[in-house]
């Protein structure tokens, strides 16, 4: 069931903190509420990937190295009130909602664009518009300008909307309680932590073993580069 404006309001003011929906700050509720949605605003911080020296993303590198790569190739920009961030045609940037959001365990949400901005070619997410029950923090925008003119974006603009879904019963596995969450509680724009998915640990181990076999060396032996390897074929 999608919540209407009164049901959203009821959850925003619910006396029970466990049932309360938190969306703060709400600068102008009369502008932000729709019949079954709540507009959300653009936050001040952006992340842009500089691609000129980046050949590709290699998820099988050591996670610390990937983190260093991501940091090296990502530019963080924080705009001041009244200062634009210009998204040029075809460009992609990460940003986040101005609002801090906390969903109770029985409400999920979906982030959608607004038609005003869709008409200008602004996309607000690539494929990740769903918000799990129990999510806490700022939501990430995956901004892309699919139009033909540069778009000056200012913090505080209403560029997206949230609609809320009531679960038939509260989740037993809300986002905040999940074992492998990577973005819970983040207050600003956060880049992808894809390399922290546990599947990559297995893929890395397999790749190292394959490298060790390829080098034709047993544990304790040496690789083609003359470095000693461990049981996983990892250079020591």
């Amino acid at each position: 069931m999608i919540l209407n404006e009164r049901q959203i309001l009821e959850r925003l003011t619910h006396p029970d903190p466990e049932k309360r929906l938190v969306v703060t700050p709400l600068l102008a509720p009369e502008q932000q509420f729709g019949p079954s949605s709540l507009d959300v605003r653009l936050g001040p911080d952006f992340k842009v990937v500089r691609t000129s020296r980046l050949t590709h993303l290699d998820p099988l590198k050591d996670p610390a190295e990937i983190e260093a790569d991501v940091s090296r190739y990502t530019e963080s920009i924080v705009t001041q009130p009244g200062e634009p961030f210009v998204l040029h045609p075809g460009e992609f940037a990460l940003a986040s909602t101005l609002e801090f959001i906390r969903l109770p365990y029985d409400i999920a949400a979906r982030l959608e664009g607004r038609s005003t901005w869709g008409r200008l070619g602004l996309e607000v997410h690539a494929t990740a518009g769903f918000v799990d029950p129990g999510f806490t923090g700022a939501l990430t925008f995956e901004l892309k300008n699919s139009g033909q003119v540069p778009l000056p974006l200012y913090a505080g603009l209403r560029i997206a909307q949230l609609c809320f879904f009531l679960l038939s019963e509260p989740s037993q596995l809300p986002y905040a309680a999940k074992r492998y969450t990577k973005y819970a509680g983040r207050t600003g724009t956060v880049g992808s932590q894809y390399f922290k998915d546990p599947e990559y640990a297995a893929l890395r181990a397999a790749a190292r073993r394959a490298y060790g076999e390829w080098a034709g060396k047993k544990p304790g032996g040496e690789t083609a580069r003359g470095l000693r390897v461990d049981v996983d074929g990892r250079e020591l």
Binding site: L9, T13, L26, T136
Partner: peptide, 30 residues
């Protein structure tokens, strides 16, 4: 203490379900 952003605060009081809708919505203005 609740782990919530502290950029603003609400002074709207209680929602009056009999009030016009925009008056009700104003309760959650920060």
């Amino acid at each position: 203490a609740s782990g919530i952003l502290v950029s603003g605060y609400r002074r709207g009081g209680q929602v009056d379900p009999e009030a016009p809708i925009y008056q009700q919505l104003a309760v959650v203005r920060d």
